[in-house]
Design a protein around this nucleic acid. Sequence first.
RNA 1: GCGAAGGUGGCGGAAUUGGCAGACGCGCUAGCCUUAGGAGCUAGUGGGGAAUACCCGUGCGGGUUCGAGUCCCGCCCUUCGCACCA
Length: 960
Amino acid sequence: MNEEYNPKQVEDKWRDFWREQGFFRAKTEAGGKKFYYLNMFPYPSGSLHVGHGRNYIIGDVVTRFFIMRGYNVLNPMGWDAFGLPAENAAIERGIHPRNWTIKNIAAAKEQFRSWGIEYDWDREITTCLPDYYAWTQWLFLKLYENDLAYKKEAAVNYCPVCDTVLANEQVVGGVCERCGTAPQRKTMKQWFFRITAYADRLVDDLDALTGWPENVKKMQKNWIGRSSGAEVLFRTEDGDEIVVFTTRPDTLWGATFMVLAPEHPLVDRVTTEEERAAVEDYRERAARASDIDRLSTEREKTGVFTGGYAINPASEEKIPIWIADYVLMAYGTGAIMAVPAHDERDFAFALQFGLPIIPVIEPSNGHAESFAAAGTMADGFGAALVADGISAAESAAGIRVSLEAGQIDRYIEIAREYLKPGRFTAVVGARFAVILEDGVYDLDSVRSDREILARLQQLDPALAGARTVMEVLAGIAEYEGFLFHSEYGTMVHSGRFSKVAGAEARAKVTEWLEETGKGRGAINYRLHDWLISRQRYWGAPIPIIYCERCGIVPVPEEDLPVLLPDVEFIGKMGLADIPGYAETICPRCNSPARRDTDTMDTFVDSSWYYLRFISPQEKERPFVVEDVNRWLPVDQYVGGVEHAILHLLYSRFITKALNDMGYLDFNEPFIRLFTQGMVCHTAYRCPEHGWIYPQQVEDGRCPHCGATLETANFSMSKSKRNVVAPAEIIDRYGADTERLYTLFMGPPDRDIEWSEEGVRGSFRFLNRVFTLVIAEAERVAAASERLNPDVLDRAGKDLWRRYHRTVRKVTEDIEGRFNFNTAVSAIMELVNELAKYVKEGGEDDALVREVIQGLILILSPFTPFFCEETWRRIGNTDAILDQQWPSFSAMALKEAMREIPVQINGKVRMRVNIPTTISSDSEALKAAVLAAESVCDRLAGKEIINVIAIPDKLVSIVVK
RNA sequence: GCGAAGGUGGCGGAAUUGGCAGACGCGCUAGCCUUAGGAGCUAGUGGGGAAUACCCGUGCGGGUUCGAGUCCCGCCCUUCGCACCA
């Protein structure tokens, strides 16, 4: 009777073995090859599910692999333990957030233990403990000393539900990232970190991060949003300056109006008495409208005229100043020059409010359109165009003309010849001109716009309501799509800059702005400084004291940490609500002073934790500079893509800042980054009763009302009630099975669906391996001969080669590609072949021993309990982690014969076995294949036109 | 609208550099074993077809090539990120 695989027994036996043996303890001082592997440390909330497990299982596999490869591996774990969820959970349960957090940490550690995931626990760090946050405060002081932390009054996003301000990055899609509430705009004095000082380096250095996923780099780039252009100085009629940012200084002559954000500080000054009521009304409505409404692209443009005017510094035209909510106070200067002919938004706004639209950039293709409504032209017009090679399409509505570059002047001549008295037509595109009986009028200035419009209205009373020429043209359907463009091209109607082309135009105009003092080249960023003040209790207190005499005084380093007051937790509160907390003595002058009562954003805690792991118990300083410089950057960082912007950008910023201060000799914290996908599972939803646990579902119906449930796949989350608890899997199949399945189910960077059947497949595989190993255990333990490849029979050679191929593949898949799924399937193939060899009476004991030993070793990072057990069963007494990772030999990989597919006219028709000595040479291979019997039969009576032979791959024959 | 990733059997996925499409696993089918289990073993499993012939087949339509899942052009769909960014 064969022994059965009993995962519980096996796992209980080895659970604490690795920790007791200290395999996962990194040696800070030791030389040799180091490898710093880091998973993003978790926020300890509630219990972990199998989806969370993915991340950490990957880490454990890689760590075990590198240990066996002889590296000094550091894989630490800690807890991002400050933050709102702890506080909110504590409020709900009426307990202190510290207790809630500590309880969760204990549960998570126990979960790791049962997963067989080991860390260097001597290095555990917890951000909410004073020995950590003292150094978070130290970081604040260093930034302050270096002018990278400052306090300013600013309009901030205040979340009324979370009762605190939010960083820009924490407002996602116009709502609070955490609770989904639309934040209020509030003006408050708050602390900021000057991340914008690093904006350029944060963008530019991305290029060197070749080990980062492209999408993450792209997201950071977009987030920083660097765009270059110019700042242009406009003056109001009263002499006030309005600065605008533009990426298109070459369109300056086409700026026919200005738009200020409703919140812009100059609005009050430019508004005239007649318009004041309307402006006030609009501003109030804009303030009330949520950001979601404002951001909707679909929405029609709104705005009002202020009554004020500015002077366009290029054309010196007097242009009206409007306010509109499509201009955002938070971007650029909160004011724009509107160039309706070359900006889609300005175009829509100008058409809607009847503001003049003057084209100043010729489209690069030189194309123009014209349309002559029926009755406009004398007979023979169409024929005359065709005679001149101009393409025209005639319909009942009229003649539509499409002009290539160079045809415009000739067309205008012909059009004037045929134009009936009292009629008009126009050209749009490369040139905007209206053709009248007495001449051709170009739309080249605001004045010409008025003059042409007046003439047109004389001719056609129906146009009386039109406010601009462009509005008239926009009324003609045939011109749609030709009235506006935002390309670069040659400048026109721009004084001395007319005819300046493309890229040169921007540079020339910028130069001119600088020379004349009307502006300057400028770079603008979407990125704002990082607002770090939070009006909550559960965070690191900001180490700042306000003294009436000395002003802002940083807490002296030796007084750190500024401890969180140890009070009984009574609910929603900030430090300001705690009696006595703020009262202190000024460290400079000893007079009574007050502490800052805000705590820091928790992203500050996590922006430097990877440094602390090197010397976590250090009492005198945050980290030991020499050790940190030896161990960092992190060789491999792994975490969820949800941190692509916030955490990763902040960490990069802090690293660069500490580098500039001389603490670090590297300026990027993470060399390689991997973002794992999420684990999804079916979720059930009743239209009436919401999310339903899968266990309660019967026949796809709601247990409460019997309604048919909607099902869909979502990433596992407690709220959707679709999580799978690790205990469910581990009790039934063991942690090894969960680990194996998690790795096998798909490529780790992609989202995948958890399937109970798939889990069973992995369990079955382990059973098969177990049975096989036990059956062969005695033979393996007794085998004493050295493996001699020369004496292997055909089957033995095949297995031997397969084994070495598998070692190579698994090694490469873990080390290079992170493709654990293909590594696992390669091991499964090896097991299949081994089982076949054994079953068919394979006799070579040394081969069986080598393959089984190697199999257990390469499987061990994936299923460590299982492998430790089977390793002992085949006669070993020392631990797997003391073994070297198996190597593969080039000799073993070499085969004697190779099956070469033969294509005839592109289709594989047969396969021929060729000795590899021949198949590796193109000519020899060609000859051998053409000589092969099966090939000859096949080709009989055909004429060979071409033969292509790819060494060791295939032969392709073309016949007629 | 912009950007990125993706679309391959009934399902998860493989094919790493233009070279045998569907590895491996799930599911399914048939059989064996068995006092029956969510166990094990054997064989089969992209579609059509008696076939081991042959034809078709990697979202759709073109193209390059002896040869295309892979490269090029055009489109459709899905997911994610950004979104009035001047």
